[in-house]
């Protein structure tokens, strides 16, 4: 479904990603792990178009993604749940979800989508009228995920959903993600610092370090590989 080949990308002529290749098949759950500064967020932003690609190719669902302007990409079925949540603070929770349904697909299935989102994340129904900026970090993360789901995506990209959250809240969010995947059969691409959780449920994993893929393969094998620890802790 998503095929990234030899991607080089970065900010103002300084590349952050060098020669990154990644593949995500339909229905798969793929995790990208790696220490801070490895280029995980840059990779996501390049997929969404807010960081320009310098060379390489990105194909999604039969489209050459680099030829599609950034604001059209969500309409192809890509939902990006960005790092740091980035909810619309002055909009209510419900309005945030409505913004997610800005895509054609999201509008078509808005009613049943909203019902499903509320059933996965009931707290959103309770807070529907509250401005999203006044919620706690965990609740904002749920808004961001719900907003992504509201677009009725084919591919859900999650950038560090556990960042800055207390461990129990992060666990709760991971559990919900597993429910969502099981119920909706979504294709998920996850970027996470916390390797164990990220690899636990994934089919495949990639380890990114200083802008390069240094390890890839079956997630169970990766979670037993001490080189992953070294990539993080240096020794």
């Amino acid at each position: 479904m998503l095929n990234v080949e030899n991607l080089r990308a970065g900010y103002s002529s300084v590349p952050v990603l060098h020669d990154v290749s990644i593949e995500v098949g339909a229905g798969e759950f793929v995790s990208i792990v790696g220490p801070n500064g490895a280029g995980k967020t840059t990779l996501f932003k390049t997929l969404s178009g807010t960081v320009p690609a310098m060379s390489g190719s990105i194909r999604f669902d039969g489209h050459d993604l680099l030829a599609v302007p950034p604001h059209r990409r969500p309409h192809l079925g890509i939902a990006h749940v960005p790092e740091g949540r980035q909810v619309f603070p002055s909009l209510s929770v419900l309005e945030n979800l409505e913004m997610g349904a800005y895509t054609e697909a999201g509008r078509r299935s808005w009613k049943e989508n909203l019902k499903r989102i509320y059933s996965w994340l009931p707290v959103l129904a309770e807070r529907a009228a509250q401005p999203a900026g006044t919620l706690s970090g965990g609740e904002q993360q749920m808004v961001a995920i719900g907003r992504g789901l509201a677009s009725a995506p084919k591919l859900l990209m999650l950038d560090e959903p556990s960042m800055g959250l207390a461990p129990t809240v992060a666990d709760f969010i991971f559990d919900r993600l597993m429910d969502i995947r099981r119920d909706a059969g979504l294709t998920i691409l996850l970027v996470e610092q916390r390797v164990a959780e990220a690899l636990q449920f994934a089919d495949h994993g990639y380890v990114l370090e200083t802008g390069r893929v240094v390890l890839a393969g079956d997630s169970r094998k990766l979670s037993a590989d001490d080189r992953v620890r070294q990539a993080y802790l240096g020794m």
């Binding site: 390797v195 959780e197 979670s223 037993a224 620890r229 802790l233």
Partner: peptide, 24 residues
């Protein structure tokens, strides 16, 4: 000290997730 810190299960847990130190 660095050598002690990088082996500390708490640090490994913080960076790689609690579950990592368990199965490692």
């Amino acid at each position: 000290r660095p050598d002690a810190v990088t082996r500390d299960p708490k640090v490994i847990g913080a960076y790689l997730g609690k579950k990592w130190s368990a199965h490692a």
